[in-house]
Nucleic acid binder design. Sequence first.
RNA 1: GGAGGGUUAGGCUAAUGGUAAGUCACCGGUCUUGAAAACCGGCGGGCGAAAGCCCUUGGGGGUUCGAGUCCCUCACCCUCCGCCA
Length: 425
Amino acid sequence: MLDIKYLRENLKEAEQRLSTRGTGDLSSFKSLDERRRTLLKEAEKLKEERNRVSEEVGRLKKEKKDASALISAMQEVSLRIKALDGEINEREGELQTLLLNMPNLAHPTVPIGRDENDNPVVRVVGGKPSFSFSPKGHVEIGEALGIIDFERAARLAGARFSLMKGAGALLERALINFMLDLHTKEHGYTEVLPPFMVKSDCFVGTGQLPKFEEDLFKIEGWDHYLVPTAEVPVTNIHREEILDAAALPIRYAAYTPCFRKEAGSYGKDVKGLIRQHQFNKVELVRFSAAETSYDELEKLTSDAEDVLKRLGLHYRVVLLCTADLGFSSAKTYDIEVWLPGQDRYREISSCSNFEDFQARRADIKYRPEGGGKPRFVHTLNGSGLAVGRTVVAILENYQRPDGTVTVPEALRPYMGGLERIGRRG
RNA sequence: GGAGGGUUAGGCUAAUGGUAAGUCACCGGUCUUGAAAACCGGCGGGCGAAAGCCCUUGGGGGUUCGAGUCCCUCACCCUCCGCCA
C-alpha cells in the first residue's frame, strides 16, 4: 500500500509514476480523500462538543441539578455524529479498497518498458554447456529414467502435477536440504518451517489479496488459503510488531510447497515440471531498515545466485522493467537458468525489494537506532531456489549421451554419494 | 464436537455507567571519577508550527447525554472431556 500522505502531497508525481504501471488516474482518490477529511473535521468538532457537555452533565447530576436541556441537545448532536461516522466509514472503506488495489511505485532505477523483452540483462554467469548430441528435454529424460511419472500423477491429481520416484524424489529432497544448509550455514539465514495455509490477513499483507484471489486455492469453509509461496507466511511472521533496529536485517529461509491455480496460463508449459499447481521452493526473506534495503536486495540476489554457482549451472540475471514488475514490488531481479532442452533461459528465482509497501499493509515497523518514532521496515524476498525448476536444470544440463544424468558434486553428500542417476538409480 | 475460564498500552495490573490509575521494563535528564541508588521527565495512534483537539480497553454492532464497565455477535487464547498422527 502506498503512503496516503505521499499521494496527497505529490499527486501529479504519483500519477506520472503509476502511469508506467498502467494505473495512472488518481482523481477518484483525490475526491474521496478530500471528502473524507471534510467529514472527519466536522465529526471531530461535534465529538469535542459532546465530550465537553457530557462531562458537564455528570457534574450537574452530582450536584443534583437539572441537566435535561443539555441532554436533549446532545441527543441531536449524537445523532448527527452517528450519521457522519457512517459516511466516514463508507468513504474510508472505498479509499481502502482503492489503495489496496494500487500497485507499488517502481524504483527510479527500474527501466520503463512494454513487456518482458524490455528487461535488460544485468549479468551473465558461466557458459552454455556443449553437447556431442542433441540435448533432450527434462520430461523425456525423467520418464526414460523412471524418476518422474506424469501419467500416474495425472491419474491422481490431473494436469500440472507430478509424481517423483526413486532417485527423482531423492534429488528433490536433496536439493531442499542442500539449499537450506547453504543459506543457514553460510548466508546467515534462520530456518523456519511455517504453516502451509494461512489466514486471509496475511495475503492482504503481502499483496496477493484482494486483487489476485483467482490465483489462490481457498480452503472451503475457512478463512485460509494454501500458500502460493513462503513469502506469505514468512513475511507475516512479524505482522503488527515493532522490531528492534539492532536486530535488522532479519533473515529467514523457509522451505514450503507452493500451490497456485495458474489461472490464465492455459496452453503455457502444459507438459513437464516448469508450471505446476504444486511445487517445492526454498524462499529467502529479509526485513531491513529503510536506508539499506537496496544493499540488502543485492545480497539477497547474490545468495540465490550462489545456489546455481555451487551446482555449476549457467544463468543470467535480468532486471524487470515496469511492465513485468510484480504488483507489490519496487524493484525485481529475475535469475534465469539456462535450459539446453528448451534452448532458452527460464526464470528460477525472483528477488524483490518491496520497500514499505508490504510493511504498511501488514503493519511491520522498527524503532530506529537511538530511539524515535517507529518506521515501517522494508521487506524483501527471493526464491533460493524454485526446486522443481532446479531439477529441470540439472536433468537437462547434466544429461549424458547414454541417457543417464551426472549428479552435481555439491549434491552428492545429500544423495548418499550417488554420482550418476541411471535407469535404476 | 461438549463444558468452563479469559483478552486493558512492551510485560503485569486497577477502574459504584462519569471520560483509562498504577507498577515493572525501557529511554532521556539531574547527581557521580564511572556505575548503581535516589530524584525529575518521557514511554499507543492521528492532525497540528504550537496550544490543543480527536481516536485507542481483542473485532463489529446496540443501549445511553456519556460504555473498559450493560446487551448482542464474531474472533482468538487457556483448562478439562471426546476424537486423533
